[in-house]
Design a protein around this nucleic acid. Structure first.
Length: 600
RNA sequence: GGAGCUGUGGUGUAGCCUGGUCUAACAUAUCUGCCUGUCACGCAGAAGAUCGCGGGUUCGAAUCCCGUCAGCUCCGCCA
């Protein structure tokens, strides 16, 4: 099949499709764009012409141009066309109030088909329910959809506001290397082989952490960067192998200073990008309080359903599962599911299955009735105990109470997840707005059973609280960090800290996390050395920019606010990356493959 | 590394549990013809699917079983 495609070289676009209004009536315009829809009435053809700014109706009629009408006959969806015509008010009664440009239309005098298009594999419109497979494979078509374009515009605005705001506060944006050094701790690195240094590898940065600290040593004082980071870990709805951070660092500041700048910046981004007014300062929770009340260090404050501790009651009760959990140093906590007392056996089983994925051994429950708490386990409790439990939860008939008895980490993880699930299921998150919170007073270190050593909760450059420094040697697990996380609606948006700026203290922390002096020198010698040359006290923060934009856009995954995201198996369905490379490329890089041949 | 969900014309679904009138249904998109005020245009007609892939059970598999691939959600992992 052949089709005539025409040049637009001698035509200049005068307006964007979506911007025309009644004020442009009688204006001669040249428009270019994609055909959203053609409505052929035989002697009269309507075409909805689309660009990033919107849609406008163009009309082909023998009254305006028979030649153009003939051309319109060949036009199909997603053809790229140019039209020359006159803006006219629509005839009385044919205005379309659903369209921004619905009061006017373009009477076409001349038309050109700039490019034909195959029928797209899915509709170019908002709210499509297409397998994400197909959207990703044809990402260029997916990105034609208005809601995707709005997301990218929102992302741009957020980035621009960030730059404007930080510029106004004396920050400068400094680029740091993408080809850098692999360091221990943290996520798996993406490695890049060095051709000129056989056997040596660069790592793509997990974050510019060390470079920004070095910039503080350099006296940059206020640094920021909107920067790509790479982590070779498994993906989630809010985790991609490459993602973008707003990375900041300041000298001569306290945690309070960093939090103040951050709050103002976030508020400004919300205002500029979405018109949303958020109140500052943001509320604060301590790490322990967050765990106790919400079971997580990134609580969703849009709803209550707080965890309730009944360990004291459980310790003396007749239910062995509860009693022995407390005896073993664990906790018994529960969550009230309002109005869920009618849940069927099957529904409760499903919740139990859910709990099992968080390592809980089971889920105990009471159904609240007019006559008190009912459940198979009720017989193990005295009347007083039942009343105490019911009172503590403020339970009312028709409610369901769910319990986990286990070691604290399991109790927190399970009930935290259960709380999130119930919040969604009971529709408590809908239209509940944007609830920011700081989480502070993190422990500096935690003991990792698998590795048999202490590891940094944030990263090893985080400063301990002054008054806890002495504990580093005696009780490392009790040292609190000068760290702060920013959480929005249950999503960890960012985290930061005041950093260590003294060599001796940094060496001490390395020691506590099990780095030998030699290893510390080999991996972080440049930082330690820099600290010897007059390093100011400094601190900063880094945000998951994709996550922030995701929440502002009201989406459930950062893939929807990234132009070209990867699938859960870290591949790009459009380009087919990652891919095999030629033997020659490998030879140049001094790389030999050692892949087990699998029998097929 | 593990658990769960999904995979049926271009797209979205039904059918699957309980195998056979499934020679696979519906909507929409597509194509052809008609149509001068539509904007979810309308009307008439047509074409389009070996049911993700491989194997097994069976007289017979979209349907049951095993394996595998892909996408998604989650656990682990993510300083």
């Amino acid at each position: 099949m052949t089709y005539a495609v025409e040049s637009a070289n001698d035509l200049r676009r005068t307006h964007m499709c979506g911007v025309l209004t009644e004020a442009d009536t009688d204006r001669e315009v040249v428009l270019m764009g994609w055909v959203q829809k053609r409505r052929d009435h035989g002697g009269l053809i309507f075409v909805d012409l689309r660009d990033r700014w919107g849609v406008v109706q163009v009309v082909f009629s023998p009254e305006y141009s028979q030649e153009a009408l003939n051309k319109a006959d060949r036009i199909r969806s997603e053809y790229v066309i140019a039209v020359v015509g006159r803006v006219q008010k629509r005839p009385e009664g044919t205005e379309n109030p659903n369209l921004a440009t619905g009061a006017i239309e373009i009477h076409v005098a001349q038309a050109r088909i700039l490019n034909a298009a195959k029928t797209p594999p899915f509709y170019i419109e908002d709210g499509v329910e297409v397998d994400e497979n197909i959207r990703l494979r044809y990402r260029y078509l997916d990105l034609r959809r208005p809601e995707m374009q709005r997301a990218l515009e929102l992302r741009h605005k957020a980035a621009k506001t960030t730059r404007d705001f930080l510029d106004g506060r004396g920050f400068i944006e400094v680029e740091t290397p993408m080809l850098t050094k692999s360091t221990p701790e943290g996520a798996r690195d993406y490695l890049v082989p060095s051709r000129v240094n056989p056997g040596s590898f660069y790592a793509l940065p997990q974050s510019p952490q060390l470079f920004k600290q070095i910039l503080m040593v350099s006296g940059i004082d206020r640094y920021f960067q909107i920067v790509r980071c790479f982590r070779d870990e498994d993906l989630r709805a809010d985790r991609q192998p490459e993602f973008t951070q707003i990375d900041m660092e300041m000298s001569f500041v306290s945690a309070e200073d960093v939090m103040e700048v951050t709050e103002s910046m976030i508020a400004e981004i919300c205002r500029q990008a979405t018109g949303l007014e958020v109140k500052v300062p943001f509320p604060r929770l301590t790490y322990q309080e967050a765990l106790d009340r919400f079971g997580t260090d990134k609580p969703d404050l849009r709803f209550g359903l707080e965890l309730v501790d009944i360990s004291d009651v459980a310790a003396g009760c007749g239910f062995k599962v509860f009693r022995s959990a407390v005896q073993a140093g664990g906790l018994v906590k529960g969550i009230l599911a309002p109005g869920c007392g009618g849940y069927s056996r099957k529904e409760i089983d499903e919740l139990t299955q859910f709990a099992l994925t968080y390592k809980a051994k089971g889920l105990a429950y009471f159904i609240v009735t007019e006559d008190g708490l009912k459940a198979p386990i009720a017989k193990f409790f005295s009347e007083d105990e039942l009343v105490a439990i019911r009172t503590r939860f403020g339970a009312r008939p028709g409610d369901l109470i769910l319990f986990v008895a286990d070691q604290p980490t399991v109790v927190y993880a399970t009930l935290g997840a259960l709380r999130r699930l119930l919040g969604e299921r009971l529709d408590l998150t809908k239209d509940a707005g944007y609830r920011f919170t700081w989480v502070v007073d993190f422990p500096l270190l935690e003991f990792n059973d698998e590795e048999g050593r202490f590891v940094a909760v944030h990263h090893p450059f985080t400063a301990p609280r002054e008054e806890d420094i002495l504990l580093l040697a005696s009780e490392p697990g009790r040292v609190r960090a000068q760290a702060y996380d920013l959480v929005l609606n249950g999503v960890e948006l960012g985290g930061g800290s005041i950093r260590i700026h003294r060599r001796d203290l940094q060496e001490k922390v390395f020691e506590v996390i099990g780095l030998t002096p030699d290893e510390a020198l080999e991996k972080f010698g440049f930082l330690l050395e820099a600290f010897d040359y007059g390093t100011p006290p400094h601190g900063g923060i880094a945000f998951g920019f994709d996550r922030l934009v995701m929440l502002l856009a009201g989406r459930g995954t950062i893939r929807d606010v990234m132009a070209f995201p990867k699938t859960q198996s870290a591949s790009d369905l459009m380009t087919d990356a990652p891919d095999k490379v030629s033997r020659r490329q490998l030879r140049e890089l001094h790389i030999g493959l050692d892949i087990q041949k699998v029998d097929k």
